[in-house]
Structure formats: C-alpha cells, structure tokens
C-alpha cells in the first residue's frame, strides 16, 4: 500500500518495494468487510451456476434454505445481544451460501435451514461474532448436518448428471466402495474438470471453482499461499501414496470431492486461517495430508471438511509457532 497517496497531499514515503513506511494520516484503501464478503459471494456465482446447470434449478431450494437460516440467525443474535446489526456486512449471507453449496443435490431445504442456524449460532455467535470464531462457520454447520442427517448428506440419487445420466455416486464414493473401473481415468479427468459428476452442489466443477479462485486472487482477497500449499500438498501426498501402490492418481485426489472447493473457499477464510505466510503453508499442507489420510485409510470417502476443521483448531498454535522474530531480538 506504499503507493497509496491521499488526494493531492504530499506523503513522505520511506523505503521501496516491500519495505515502505508512510507517516500518518493513512488513506483507507477502500475495502470494507462488506465489500470483501460480497465480492467472495460474487466469486461463488460460477459454482452456483454450474450446480444449476448440472443438477437443475431445484438445487436453489437448499441453497436458499441455508442462506435464510444463516441470515435470520445473524439478525436475531445481533438483536438479542443489543449490538449493531451485522447482517448488512454480508458475512452471514456468505456463510449460508457456502453451506448451501456443500450439501448434496436434493437435500431437504428445511435441514439446510437448520444447518444455517447452527453455522451462525454455534459456529460463530457463541464465540463473539465475526472475527472471533475458531472454526469455519459453514463447515461447522456441515459437520452438524453430517452427524445429524447422515442419510440425507450422503444421498446422491438426485445428482443425475445432466448430459449423460451415468454416474450417481460421487467419484470418491465409487473409488472407495464401488468399482473404480467404472471411472476410466482419461474420461474421469475431463468430467471432473467440467463437473459432470455426482457430488455436492458447488464442488463438482473444477472450472467453475477456478473461475472463483481467479476473482479471489485478482482482487487479492484470498491468500494464494493457502490455495497453492493445499493443492501442492494434495499432489505430493497423493503422489507419494500412488507411487507406493496405494490410491488413485494425485490428479484425481485434487479434482474430486471437495478438495478444490475447500482449498479456494473454505481454507482461505481470514478468521480461521493462520496470519503468517509460513503458517499458511503449514496450514494448507496439513489439510492436504489429513484429507489424503482420511480418504485412503479412513472409513469415509471424503475428509476435506474434517481436515479443515481440525487444522482450524490448530491455527492458534500455528500462529504462535510461526510468529516472526522481532528485529534484533533473540527467540
């Protein structure tokens, strides 16, 4: 922000490049919480569009349910706490939208609404609101739904892909419980890129997710370190196991399930990710490692959600461990 200069004012800028100091008064660079939240919501539009394209307009019902549940809870909590209304900053809307995009197609809108209530209520409000929550609120809501409605959360029967109604189970489900040969690898990669497979609403289309990622990266909202380290970790850990004769190709790991969606939209949440770049690398690699372990050795086909929640819990320790050294001080 060194080059940011107030209108016509003369500012003394010390240093060049990354090391510049400006004396006060500082000009606000224009990004408020609300603007960030609404921009992230905008970056989710491609995913929402791909969900509607592949699974039909009916998928808007659970998304709407989750958004309404989250927004209503945010409103009620602010009223009960006699605090300024935080609904317009869009964070609750974003949480609801994220939650709505990680449920299966055909998921009950009422259950999604309940998930939205839990996301904001248990995931955020009890910790003190935006900025104080330890865990990603949308994922808290999803973990709650997964524990409460395991049948509904794993019912992929509505995910008949639009173009050719072949695969109903998710690719990861097929890999874990079914016949992986049903999923010839070259076709699979192409399908996974486009999103013409079974899965949660927003997570199937890699192209749509990458479009969202581009928005987040160009506007510099998300830290690229988290996305890159998580995807890189997926390739490395998945690749090591694959070379050792266990598991599918690392590309399949990264493209299938919620891996990319998690890396782009979930792990990059400001509040629940580490603040130091070094910590962000540890965070992303940790999520990737846990995900691959759960997928390969766990009883569940997918583990991105659990991995992110677990690494969320470790963020205070990561921040503490990667605290930069104060210049001139010894550790």
């Amino acid at each position: 922000m060194a080059t940011e200069s107030s209108k016509g004012g003369s500012l003394q800028v010390i240093g060049e490049g990354n090391l510049s100091l400006v004396t006060s008064p500082h000009a606000h660079f224009g990004w408020s919480t609300a603007r960030i939240m609404w921009t992230v919501s905008l970056s989710l539009v491609p995913c929402l569009a791909s969900a509607v394209w592949f699974f039909g307009a009916g998928v808007l019902a659970p998304v709407a349910g989750a958004v309404i549940g989250a927004a209503a809870t945010e409103w009620v909590v602010a009223r009960l706490n006699h605090k300024p209304q935080t609904l317009p900053d869009g964070s609750a809307f974003l949480t609801g939208l994220l939650l709505g995009l990680i449920v299966p197609p055909g998921f009950s809108p009422l259950h999604a609404l309940l998930g939205g209530v839990v996301s904001i209520g248990i995931g955020k409000a009890v910790f003190g609101g935006l900025g104080d929550n330890i865990f990603n609120p949308a994922l808290v809501g999803r973990a709650f739904l997964q524990a409460s409605f395991p049948a509904g959360m794993t019912d992929w029967s509505a995910s008949v892909a639009r173009v050719d109604a072949v695969s109903q189970a998710t690719p990861l489900g097929l890999y874990k419980f079914g016949d992986p040969s049903q999923f010839a690898s070259d076709i699979a990669t192409q399908k996974l890129l486009v999103g013409n497979v079974g899965g949660c609403l927003g997570e199937t289309s890699a192209v749509a997710i990458l479009a969202g990622a581009a928005i987040l990266l160009v506007t510099r909202i998300a830290h690229w370190q988290i996305m890159v380290s998580m995807v890189l970790g997926g390739f490395v850990f998945g690749g090591v196991l694959h070379l050792g004769g266990v598991g599918p190709s690392p590309l399949f790991h990264v493209l299938s399930g919620g891996f990319l969606f998690g890396a782009v939209f979930m792990a990059t949440d400001y509040v629940t990710s580490p603040t130091t770049p070094r910590g962000q690398w540890i965070f992303g690699l940790g999520i990737a490692l846990l995900t691959i372990l759960i997928r390969e050795f766990g009883g569940l086909p997918e583990g991105v959600m659990y991995s992110i929640l677990m690494m969320n819990a470790a963020v205070p320790l990561i921040n503490r461990g990667t605290r930069p050294r104060i210049y001139g001080a010894k550790r």
Binding site: I122, V140, F297, G298, G299, Y306, A313
Partner: peptide, 18 residues
Amino acid sequence: LTAGILALSFMGFAGMKF
C-alpha cells in the same frame, strides 16, 4: 462448545484402518 465442534471434526477419523 469448542470441545463439541472438535469432537465433530475428529469424527473424520472414524473407521480408519492401517
């Protein structure tokens, strides 16, 4: 409450075998 959410996240390890 935090312990409850942590416990939810540890459900990811359910059924893990080596």
